[in-house]
Each structure stands twice: as C-alpha cells, then as structure tokens.
C-alpha cells in the first residue's frame, strides 16, 4: 500500500491539519505520521474518528504521500498539494506586504 497520512480540518478555525506521530494535529504535512501497512492506516483512520468525537477536527481522511528528494513528505495528488501549501496564486495582499 502506498504511503498514507491522515488529514482533516481543525474544528475551531478550519485550518488544514495532519495527524502527527505523537497523536497531536499539526499544520505541516512534513511533520505528519506516515504509514503504509493497511492495519496501520486503519489505526490512523480510527484516531481520526476519535478526534471527530473529541471535537478536535472535522472530515478526516487519508491521503497518499510520497517522499521528495530531501525525504520530506509531499502529497501525491495536486489537490492535496494545494491544500498543504495554500493557494498557488500570489495574493494581492502578499504583493503589497512585499
């Protein structure tokens, strides 16, 4: 099975988060806990369901990731890359701040 991490949105502010090795939810996909064995992925999903009940996150689901050249985790699908990195476009407010 391909390498998977568990992602969701945080309930309070909607931020994109990933389940980390210590069980907390972090905003960087690179810090996520990645698993490939089906039973380990099932445990990620179970942790996601528990976090929904605990009102930490909403809509958890596993996504496929791969390791980049520097070993960092990168989502496979472009949708998830955009989700991980933010809008692909330069924002006018960024421009003004620059």
């Amino acid at each position: 099975m391909a390498l998977q991490v568990l992602t969701a949105n945080r309930l309070r502010d909607g931020a994109v988060v990933y389940l980390s090795p210590d069980g907390s939810w972090v905003e960087r996909v690179a810090a996520a806990r990645a698993e490939s064995a089906p039973e380990a992925v099932a445990r990620l999903e179970a942790a996601g369901r528990a976090a929904v009940v605990a009102r930490e996150v909403v809509e958890p689901y596993p996504i496929a990731v791969e390791q980049g050249e520097d070993g960092r985790l990168i989502p496979v699908r472009y949708r998830e890359r955009i989700r991980a990195e933010g809008p692909s476009i330069r924002l006018q407010c960024d421009e003004e701040a620059a």
Binding site: D13, G14, V16, V58, E59, R79, I82, R83, G86
Partner: peptide
Amino acid sequence: GLYLQLHAY
C-alpha cells in the same frame, strides 16, 4: 453562509 472549504472555513 458558512462553508468548510479546502484550506479553511
């Protein structure tokens, strides 16, 4: 009017 979108609400 409140959605949950890709990155946030």
